[in-house]
Design a protein around this nucleic acid. Structure first.
Length: 591
RNA sequence: CGGGGCGUGGUGUAGAGGCCUAACAUGCAACCCUGUCAAGGUUGAGAUCGCGGGUUCGAAUCCCGUCGUCCCCGCCA
């Protein structure tokens, strides 16, 4: 027997029991004739005492032991005297008087401090991930992730969903993200693609009559990484037949509300989830995934400044742009240098500049401003009123195209939320973003691209616009956002061949190409495809936000670096010539 | 693809032309110590300062290049 109890288990009621514990040496405190060892496993830490006078052989063994050695200890559970109780750990009222020690394995001096958290280069953590994962923080993240996924499975099972696996070796399509490709040995010159999502297969499962499907699906996208993006990640993927948008929104809202309430009860979830249209999100926040835990909303003042001689404003409006801004409470005290730094922030987001109006703390003192001298006092007063600016506030304006204005002010909004600590870390602010456009204009390729994907249904009222004004067509699509992150999105799908072909035509996918790439979908729609729709949600991002982590790497056991490398296994790596030969691959010479 | 940050004993940092024969903390090693829980004390070992080139009488420090890693832009239907 390796152990009778875990290292997190023993309490007062076990006093007197003879126990066996196995685990890692968290810390050793050597007092000579008396040695304390904190023995650790994933359930907790228990203090073991080695007394030379009581068990000399065990004591001798303990003096050989170092951090991260793996041990088994036999001994008796004893009370700690009141003054030696450790209130910081659950097992702190007892300790184990060791009589026998067995050293299963020694350990080199670890490059990470297991019992402390963080500080070192992340690349070191990734190289020694198996040590990093021993740390309490990572164990808690993995544990929460497990419980969240289990909660989702149980919930959807109760709701009648079937979990069905779909292939990892799939077909490449030119739409969307860059594919990870897998060469075929059997079919020279041909390739599988790893799934970016199981999109088509789940729709085909609807055609097959599995009217409530879900999957905890691994997805792969060969694009550059971010703090919230990894080359492979996990989605809750689900699809339902005979439902409308409302059914899906309600299902997910119930799932996440209950999940958070159960698993992270210290978090507040405002319900019902607020709903924004895409247009409203852009207008009010400059982003289709705003963090709505704080205000700093954008206000359009194009009309107020339309007739001012300031060239910057004039030019923007003349070119069909707009003038919008936001009000920073208490920002009126910013120094000229600090304001100049804000201009740089705005420029890094794409704006040519940033106009500012800094109100003095005293109501009667004239404001400082980069543009007031071009603008009438009356207009300034209107501006202040429009923003509800108080003495001591700062109004920032961007004049440019709608896109640049939105991007810049969204960035500034985040900047000030961070500086002023406006985002409450105990709040999970879910929200739905609805009525996305079906397509947007790709100026480079001179064609319409799907905003969501080519199978997204247009809204009934807008179908006629597909021929006349495609940019105005709203999709039956929805995103779920959380604290400024896109948690996921979905749509009601097209289930009729004719409409699907119309959609392909709009996307400039000719009949031949459509047949080659999506023929199976078109054909399936001819065999009784039910109305259906679904959603896909990022599990990694969800767990990250539940535990207030700042990157999804913290909630993945073995993540990759920004260059998509695995530092522990040293992947990717070259392969044998024989393997390449079998796959009919010749490497191009380096230039 | 572009912008920015970081790279110095095992780990985290300091040093910003000569005070560097590289400092501090922690870890590591040895010894002392019977109530610690970040134990304490004494002593000691451990770094050609990511790599390559250049400037200079002299480079951890300045310049160029390169590699790794992180953040952001593009990209991510």
């Amino acid at each position: 027997m390796f152990r009778s109890h875990t290292c997190g288990e023993l309490r007062i009621e076990h006093v007197g029991a003879n126990v066996i514990l196995s685990g890692w040496v968290n810390r050793r405190r050597d007092h000579g004739p008396l040695i304390f060892i904190d023995l650790r496993d994933r359930y907790g830490v228990t203090q073991i005492v080695f007394d030379q006078s009581a068990a000399s052989q065990a004591h001798a063994g303990a003096s050989e032991v170092r951090s991260e050695y793996v041990l088994q200890v036999q001994g008796q559970v004893v009370h700690r005297t009141p003054e030696t109780v450790n209130p910081d750990i659950p097992t702190g009222t007892i300790e184990v008087q060791a009589s026998v020690i067995t050293i299963f394995n020694a350990s080199r001096t670890p490059p990470l401090y297991i019992s402390k958290d963080g500080g070192e280069e992340e690349s070191l953590r990734l190289k020694y991930r198996y040590l990093d994962l021993r740390r309490q923080r990572m164990q808690e993240n993995m544990h929460l992730r497990h419980r969240a996924v289990k909660y989702i499975r149980d919930f959807l099972d109760t709701e009648g969903f079937l979990e069905i696996e779909t292939p990892i070796l799939m077909k490449s399509t030119p739409e969307g993200a860059r594919d990870y490709l897998v060469p075929s040995r059997v079919h020279p010159g041909q390739f599988y693609a790893l799934p970016q999502s199981p999109q088509q297969l789940k729709q085909l499962l609807m055609v097959a009559g599995y009217d409530r499907y879900f999957q905890i699906a691994r997805c792969f996208r060969d694009e550059d990484q971010r703090a919230d993006r990894q080359p492979e990640f996990t989605q809750l993927d689900l699809e339902m037949s005979f439902v409308d948008q409302e059914d899906i929104l309600n299902l997910i809202e119930t799932l996440f509300t209950q999940l958070v309430t159960t698993l992270t009860p210290d978090k507040q979830v405002p319900t019902p989830f607020p709903r924004l249209t895409y247009t409203e999100a852009i207008n009010r926040y400059g982003s289709d995934k705003p963090d709505i835990r704080y205000g700093l909303e954008l206000v359009d003042v194009s009309d107020v400044l339309a007739n001012t001689p300031f060239q910057v404003f004039q030019n923007a409006l003349a070119q069909g742009g707009q003038i919008k801004g936001l009000c920073v409470p208490g920002g009126g005290q910013y120094s000229r240098k600090q304001l100049d730094e804000l201009v740089l922030v705005a420029q890094s987001a794409g704006a040519k500049g940033l106009a500012w109006l800094a109100l003095a703390n005293e109501a009667n003192t004239a404001p400082r401003s980069s543009f007031a001298r071009f603008v009438s006092e009356e207009a300034i007063a209107t501006l202040i009123a429009r923003y509800g600016a108080q003495p001591g506030d700062l109004v920032l304006l961007v004049a440019d195209t709608a896109t640049v204005v939105a991007n810049t002010l969204s960035r500034l909004r985040q900047e000030f939320a961070s500086r002023l600590n406006l985002a409450d870390p105990s709040v999970l602010a879910f929200a739905w973003v609805l009525d996305f456009p079906l397509v947007d204009w790709n100026a480079d390729e001179r064609r319409w691209d799907s905003v969501h994907h080519p199978f997204t249904a247009p809204q009934e009222d807008d179908i006629a616009l597909m021929d006349t004004d495609p940019g105005k067509v709203r999709a039956r699509a929805y995103d779920l956002i959380l604290n400024g992150y896109e948690l996921g999105g979905g749509s009601i799908r097209i289930h009729q061949r004719a409409l699907q072909q119309q959609a392909f035509a709009l996307l400039n996918i000719d009949a031949e190409t459509a047949q080659a790439q999506f023929g199976h979908m078109l054909e399936a729609f001819e065999y009784g495809a039910p109305p259906h729709g679904g959603i896909a949600l990022g599990i990694d991002r969800l767990i990250m936000l539940l535990n207030n982590e700042s990157t999804i790497r913290e909630v993945m056991a073995f993540p990759k670096t920004q260059q998509a490398a695995d530092l522990m296994m040293d992947a990717p790596s070259p392969v044998d010539e024989k393997q390449l030969h079998d796959l009919h691959i010749t490497l191009r010479k380096k230039k």
